[in-house]
Design a protein around this nucleic acid. Structure first.
Lengths: 111, 111
DNA sequence: CTGTATCCTTTTAGATACTG
DNA sequence: CAGTATCTAAAAGGATACAG
């Protein structure tokens, strides 16, 4: 008799979207991932590549992604010190998302 | 001879990502689009489907997406008034992005 | 070079009440 | 039902200075 809920139930597909959204939220995270998809990069390279991000924010985002297991941080003992960031296997799963975004961005033109 | 910039130049693929990012930024926009991908929905339906969004924020996001041309707003003259929201052709371009996100969300498990 | 520490501004969103 | 209007709080980010 479907009396009280004749309407669509909340789709369970909802949860995975939320999970991914938590990871990609923030204006900078996707851009960091974009460059790391290309190849591993050092801290200063990432900063220059992205262009307008401050080191504070970049550090914060990288630490978040490290904690989530999508980015790996490797310290190369040398002088001056070098730190290289790369995607983990899990992080590489995000490449299709970024590619889909870029494709849509092209169709959106200049908005 | 490549003295000052021996490093990789900023990839032009950057811009489309930015465009898409502007559109999808904010925690709610992707969720609204997710439900509209399923089928057109009325204001109150969207609010219930999403669950915890306030009408103020939902209105703001819908107006933004309208302005960008990804969502269409249709008023159905009736009593009580009905307003239906749907994706435009441009808006439907975003479906692959959301699907990619959901797929990654599954692999991310519970983080 | 790779960060950390402060402080401040902007953006986003939540609470709540109210209207046609 | 479909919003609008205020006000407040929280999150994100920018500027700047400084350290190992």
């Amino acid at each position: 008799m479907d009396k009280h809920r004749p309407r669509r139930p909340p789709p369970p597909e909802n949860c995975p979207l939320d999970t991914c959204l938590r990871l990609l939220s923030g204006a900078w995270t996707p851009k960091v991932l974009w460059y790391l998809c290309d190849e591993p990069r050092r801290f200063g390279d990432l900063r220059r590549d992205i262009g307008t991000i401050t080191s504070k924010v970049l550090t914060t985002r990288l630490r978040e992604m490290e904690a989530l297991g999508v980015v790996a941080r490797e310290v190369i003992p040398s002088s001056p010190p070098q730190v290289s960031y790369s995607l983990t296997a899990l992080g590489r799963e995000l490449e299709p998302v970024l590619e889909a975004m870029a494709r849509v961005g092209e169709k959106l033109g200049g908005r």
